[in-house]
């Protein structure tokens, strides 16, 4: 498990004032709830908040910071897949499956994380908000009053991961038929067709164009 409190601004030479200002305002509004941030200068921004301030974080992002465009909301299951990635040759012994949960940018403590991305047209910046979901209580408050478009995204997360959203008017399956059992995007959900007939492994590697000297042919448009 990775550490809980990671505030990691990279050590590149450029500092990103616009993004650091956003982090500063978020910290000012939410205080202790901002438990992890990560800035790629000139590129992107990740912020992790605590579970009980998930909706306030959305409201702050939308009202105070002007992130009015909603991109998406989804979840990540950080458990490494117990079935491997089927990239190995079928004749070799299967590799040892990894079991350690390593989370990504802005840290994380739990196996499941819900993350959402919002965008600001005025600032021309995007923001990724993450929140940990504990294994024993897979639920979080809904973002529906903040962004109306999150309706279907939350339904999709429910059926794919099993995370319920408290306060959502009707949580029904979005994509899967009603009798479907299981939550497909969890890492311990197997793809049965691959177990019945395993993938033959990496067989073809296409040669790079520069290796064959194909770039020097005459049939190239100038």
């Amino acid at each position: 498990m990775s550490s809980a409190d990671t505030t990691d601004t990279t050590t590149a030479t450029a500092t990103d004032e616009a993004r650091e200002e956003i982090v500063a305002i978020l910290t000012e509004e939410l205080g202790e709830a901002v438990v992890g941030t990560h800035i790629h200068p000139g590129d992107d921004l990740w912020v992790r908040v605590t579970r009980d301030t998930w909706r306030e974080a959305g409201i702050v992002a939308r009202e105070r910071l002007g992130f009015r465009a909603f991109e998406f909301l989804s979840a990540i299951d950080w458990l490494p897949s117990p079935f491997g990635k089927n990239e190995d040759s079928p004749t070799d012994a299967p590799p040892e499956p990894k079991t350690e949960i390593v989370t990504g940018y802005a840290g994380g403590d739990t196996r499941f994380q819900v993350f959402a991305r919002v965008h600001s047209h005025s600032r021309k910046l995007g923001l990724t908000l993450k929140v940990d979901i504990p294994d024993d209580d897979l639920s979080i408050v809904t973002w529906l009053p903040v962004y109306a478009g999150v309706n279907w995204h939350e339904r999709e997360v429910l059926e794919m991961f099993g995370i319920t959203f408290v306060g959502h008017p009707y949580l029904l399956n979005l994509y899967l038929p009603g009798e479907f059992e299981g939550h497909p995007l969890r890492k311990d959900f197997p793809l049965l067709a691959r177990h019945v007939k395993p993938w033959p492994g990496i067989v073809d590697v296409e040669p790079m164009p520069s290796d064959d000297g194909a770039a020097e042919s005459e049939d190239v448009a100038e």
């Binding site: 994509y175 899967l176 479907f180 497909p184 959900f189 793809l191 049965l192 067709a193 691959r194 993938w199």
Partner: peptide, 13 residues
């Protein structure tokens, strides 16, 4: 035969 989605959980092969 299911095509490129042969291993999907929701596709009929």
């Amino acid at each position: 035969c299911g095509g490129p989605y042969w291993d999907s959980y929701s596709v009929t092969k």
